[in-house]
Nucleic acid binder design. Structure first.
Lengths: 192, 192
DNA sequence: TACCTTCGTTCCGTTTACGGAACGAAGGCT
DNA sequence: AGCCTTCGTTCCGTAAACGGAACGAAGGTA
């Protein structure tokens, strides 16, 4: 697009930042570049160039990668900060019972945080496999009664309560009470 | 990317939808295709192809166009909700030191929750007047060290910590450490 | 040691997104 | 009528994003 020699940014947000976020999200999930490229159906050269900011990815590429990471494209395009647009509400992951909406992603270099809003219809239950070592989850209950945490030592909390656990073991989320549960979930991924 | 002969979509979201939104935004501003292309510094062929969904735009193109339309890229990548035609400016309160971005509002009839993201540059301090009786604040720290709560009994927490207090008294937020503080703040307003 | 796998990067030929130019269509003006 | 401007699309040569293959490095196993 820009045929001038200096190759000036001309972009509000540097593609290097986009690449940095993609890499953070990938590593937070313990995926290798090769494996993410294979799963997303893109070339390793494409993903490598995207993460290093040396390419100008197409919409199709961005979609393939973010879909495989399980995050809305917003997560890699907007810098989380004041004045940033409201994050897209895209229900994702975990699966059937729990609707988890990614609100924000914070990439601080050494640590990545993901903030979700959870909705559990009354009576539902959901199990999530272990993350890798060091990952912790921090849950704030808005409404209903939530039982969550490691499967062998679940925690219980009501509105206003805050639950935390290490999620390097199989864990789950359940709404045992008569009311729907709403909560925010903060997942902390330290750099491996 | 797709070397199969049929050139099937292979996209979760159709580029035609993206183009349709761009065209809607452009026409809502009374801009011609030629003029928007000129202002955005892209070719008319590029913009025409983008709006008609016959191209696979690059990140740089998307940025140039959305920046000129004055909308976040989110506006053309996600389907806008029924009651959200314009991405209204993100509400920011408090003011000087603390940047509070409203993430979500839950209105449950008897109770209202507001979820904010807080940004405190290192060294800043902010005081907030008392709210109504029964209002509570619940804070989860992401980064930095935060001292917050009632002025006469402040609490302190680091990354991952959770602080709660009743905010029917004057209270404050401070970042006494060397690092910027980022946190989520949940305010619970019971029906008076 | 040798051998194998997987890592991320780089090379390379193909595909395609890019901007400029040319196009026909549709007004506006004298 | 003629002439001019602007509209959005299409053509076309160039630049670059793409996937596949080859690469060296690092770690595991025998």
């Amino acid at each position: 697009m820009d045929s001038s020699p200096a190759r000036r940014p001309a972009l509000d947000t540097d593609p290097r930042d986009v690449g940095r976020r993609v890499r953070a999200l990938r590593e937070a999930r313990g995926l290798s570049l090769s494996e993410l490229a294979r799963r997303a159906g893109v070339g390793k050269a494409t993903l490598s160039g995207l993460e290093n900011g040396t390419r100008n990815p197409t919409l199709e590429t961005l979609w393939a990668v973010t879909a495989q990471l399980g995050v809305p494209m917003t997560a890699i395009l907007v810098e989380a900060g004041p004045g940033a647009p409201e994050p897209a509400a895209v229900p994702v992951m975990h699966g059937t019972a729990v609707a988890a909406t990614l609100l924000e992603v914070f990439d601080d270099g050494d640590v990545t945080y993901e903030l979700y809003r959870l909705d559990l219809p009354a009576g539902t239950e959901q199990v999530s496999p272990a993350h890798h070592a060091g990952v912790t989850e921090h849950l704030t209950v808005f409404a209903g009664t939530l039982r969550a945490g490691p499967l062998d030592a679940p925690l219980t909390g009501g509105p206003g309560d805050h639950l935390s656990w290490r999620s390097d073991v199989p864990h789950g989320y359940a709404a045992p009470g008569p009311d729907d549960v709403r909560a925010t979930l903060l997942i902390r991924y330290p750099r491996p």
